[in-house]
Design a protein around this nucleic acid. Structure first.
Lengths: 185, 185
DNA sequence: GTCTATATTTGGATAGAC
DNA sequence: GTCTATCCAAATATAGAC
C-alpha cells in the first residue's frame, strides 16, 4: 500500500510534467527536472528511486487522474453539448490555451521506455472512450460516436502541434470551439 | 556556391531524417545518426562540420525540397480534387502510411535550436500556402481557403500523433482520404 | 528528506593516421 | 573521405554527511 498522494506530490508532478511535455522524454534531463522542481538531482532520486522512467510514469499517472475527473464531469453532465464545452474549457487550462504540448505527443517518441508509451496509449484510449460516450448520449450511433471521438482527438493533438510550429495558439482555441458541434451534434 | 546535391547526399539526408523524425531533435544522438547512415561519427562531422544542428538543417532543407515538388504538382494539376488526391498519395509515402512521424512535430520541441524551429515554421507555412492555393482554385474565398488549409494541416499532424500513440496507422489513412473533400469541395 | 560529492556512462566534438 | 583514438561536457545514478 503506497502512501496517499498529497498536495506537494501533485505540485511536484505538475512541475515535472511541464518539463516532460515541453522537452519530450529524451529531451527532459535530470538537470531540467531538478531546476523545475527546486530539488537537487539526488533528492529526486530519493523520491523516485527508479529515476527518470519513474518520474515520467508519475507524470502520466497524475495526468490520468486529472483527466479522469474531467471525463467524469463529461459523463455526468445531462446537457451533452454543455458537458463537451466544459471539457473544452478544462482542456484550455491543461494545454495553457495551446501554448503547452501534450504528453501523448511528446512522451511517445522513440527513446521513451515502452511502459511509458503503453501508459500514454491507455490515457488516449480512455479519452476516446469518454468522448465517444458523450457522442452516444448526444444521439450518435456507436460507430459514428467512435469516429467523432477519434476526429476530436486528432484535431486536438494536431492543433497543439500546429500551434507550436507556427507559434500561434489561436489554432488550438479554434479547434476547442468546434468540439461541441463535432461531438454533440 | 555550394556543390550540387547528389544521390548519395539525398540518401544520407533520408537516413538522417528517419532518426530525427522518430527520436526528435534532442533524442537523436550522434550514435543513432552514425548507425543509421553507416558512417562513423567523425565521418559525419567531416560532412557536417557544424555537427548535429547542421545535420538537422540538412534534413529540413531536403524535406523542403521534396515537399516543394509536391506543392508544384498540386499547383499545376488543373483538376484540383485530383491534385489534392495526388498530394495525399505522396504524403502517404512521406509518412509511411502513418507509421513515421513528421519533422514539424518532433523537431520543434524545446531543445531544438531556434534556427531549426524557424526552418520548420517556414516549411509549415509553405505547406499551408500550397493547400490554400488549391482551395482557392477549387472556388473557395481567400479566408475560407486559409481556414481549410489550416484544418488540413491540423488533421494531418494530429492523425500522425494519434496513429503513433495508438499504434494504429489507419487513423492517418482515414484523414488522407478526407483531404480532397476538405480542400477542393 | 535534502544536500554535496562523486562515480559511470553517454553524447558531442576534434586530431591525426591512412 | 573515412577511420581509430581521444577529449571534454553533460547526463544518469549512487554514497554518505547532515
Amino acid at each position: 500500500m503506497g502512501r496517499t498522494p498529497n498536495v506537494d506530490d501533485e505540485l511536484m508532478h505538475a512541475r515535472l510534467a511541464e518539463v516532460f511535455r515541453a522537452n519530450g522524454y529524451a529531451g527532459a534531463s535530470l538537470s531540467d527536472l531538478s531546476r523545475a522542481t527546486g530539488l537537487q538531482r539526488a533528492s529526486l532520486y530519493h523520491r523516485f528511486p527508479d529515476g527518470k522512467p519513474a518520474m515520467a510514469a508519475a507524470v502520466l499517472t497524475s495526468m490520468e487522474s486529472h483527466f479522469g475527473e474531467i471525463f467524469e464531469l463529461l459523463a455526468s453532465e445531462p446537457d451533452t453539448a454543455e458537458g463537451v464545452a466544459e471539457m473544452a474549457r478544462r482542456m484550455a487550462l491543461v494545454y495553457r490555451d495551446g501554448r503547452m504540448a501534450c504528453v501523448l505527443d511528446t512522451m511517445t517518441l522513440i527513446g521513451a521506455p515502452p511502459e511509458i508509451r503503453a501508459h500514454a496509449a491507455r490515457l488516449a484510449r480512455a479519452w476516446l472512450q469518454a468522448m465517444a460516450g458523450a457522442a452516444v448520449r448526444a444521439g450518435a450511433a456507436e460507430q459514428d460516436a467512435e469516429r467523432r471521438a477519434r476526429a476530436a482527438l486528432v484535431r486536438i493533438e494536431g492543433a497543439l502541434v500546429v500551434a507550436r510550429v507556427l507559434d500561434d495558439p489561436s489554432v488550438f482555441e479554434q479547434v476547442l470551439g468546434e468540439l461541441p458541434d463535432l461531438l454533440a451534434r
